[in-house]
């Protein structure tokens, strides 16, 4: 198997997000980046498939802050190659990103073969539409299934589980090669000891690919970024636990809840 996992860095919401003074972007002073959650699952799914069927896992990411550590961690977990495309992810829209990635796959060294699976995360916190995976599939002219929560492989095809609203599941057969947007892996993402990551940082290399960013036209223009206004319906109760309990009962009674 030839497994590609696409990794995307997203803002870490552990730190409070603030809007920058231009009103169109995030204040970057304390902004940190982390790997998008579904992408971490995509990596885990790829590693599970590799453990089961053999093959090679390549992680691919666009350039972004803290991306190197993420790529090394992926290698420490068991990925075989890490590729960084030297195009800054910042300000590049999802569709443009898909173009860059498609160009990468079209380039000479990484041909899509008949046993290739490309596994992006099915969405990201700054791409809730999940446009990347289908855009990439379209650009590569490959079949696509999104919101996948399980993959098994049979001869020249993959059987994928996809979740629907209301707890329904569907099973799809997809001919290989294909693009699958991963929502969750069959197991929670594994832990990798820090010592192993530190060792990999010393021994392994990240491959870099130069690339010209695509035309500006397909970039998105953002008009305004702002925080939602507080609705002001919350009421804070203060005091000792017993007092709070009494007040809470009063509030609930006044509002005819009890």
């Amino acid at each position: 198997m030839n497994l590609y996992v696409l990794l995307k860095m997203v803002p870490d919401t552990v730190e409070e997000l603030n809007v920058a003074t231009d009103g169109k972007s995030l204040d970057s002073e304390f902004l940190r980046f982390k790997l998008d959650d579904p992408d971490e699952h995509a990596l885990e799914q790829a590693l599970l498939l590799k453990e089961k069927h053999g093959g090679k896992v390549t992680v691919v990411a666009l350039d972004a802050p803290e991306v190197d550590e993420v790529l090394f961690t992926a290698l420490a977990k068991g990925a075989d190659r890490a590729v960084k495309i030297l195009v800054n992810q910042s300000g590049l829209g999802t569709v443009a990103a898909a173009r860059v990635l498609a160009d990468y796959f079209a380039s000479a060294s990484d041909k899509i073969t008949s046993d290739t699976l490309v596994l992006p995360g099915s969405q990201a916190i700054d791409d809730l539409e999940g446009e990347l995976a289908p855009s990439l599939a379209a650009a590569l002219n490959l079949p696509f299934v999104g919101v996948v929560s399980g993959v098994t492989l049979a001869k020249e095809q993959a059987v994928v589980t996809k979740e629907f609203a209301g707890g329904l599941r569907g099973e799809f057969e997809v001919a290989l090669p294909a693009v699958l947007g991963i929502q969750s892996a069959e197991k929670p993402p594994r832990y990798v000891p820090v010592a192993k990551v530190r060792a990999v940082m010393k021994s392994a290399k990240i491959e870099t690919v130069d690339h010209t960013p695509p035309d500006r036209l397909i970039r998105l223009e953002l008009d305004r970024m702002y925080k939602p206004e507080a609705a002001g319906r919350a009421q804070m109760l203060e005091g000792a636990p017993e007092g709070i309990a009494d007040k809470l009962v009063e509030v609930l009674a006044n509002n005819s809840v009890i």
């Binding site: 552990v14 730190e15 982390k34 197991k187 929670p188 594994r190 832990y191 000891p193 820090v194 192993k196």
Partner: peptide, 28 residues
């Protein structure tokens, strides 16, 4: 830890937090 791929989730999270945020709770 090196050998077993599955760790109890709560434990794994605290280790990851300690590494990324310097505290096990994952606070800023």
């Amino acid at each position: 830890l090196v050998t077993q791929s599955a760790m109890p989730a709560e434990f794994q999270k605290s280790l990851e937090n300690m590494h990324r945020y310097g505290n096990p709770m994952g606070e800023s």
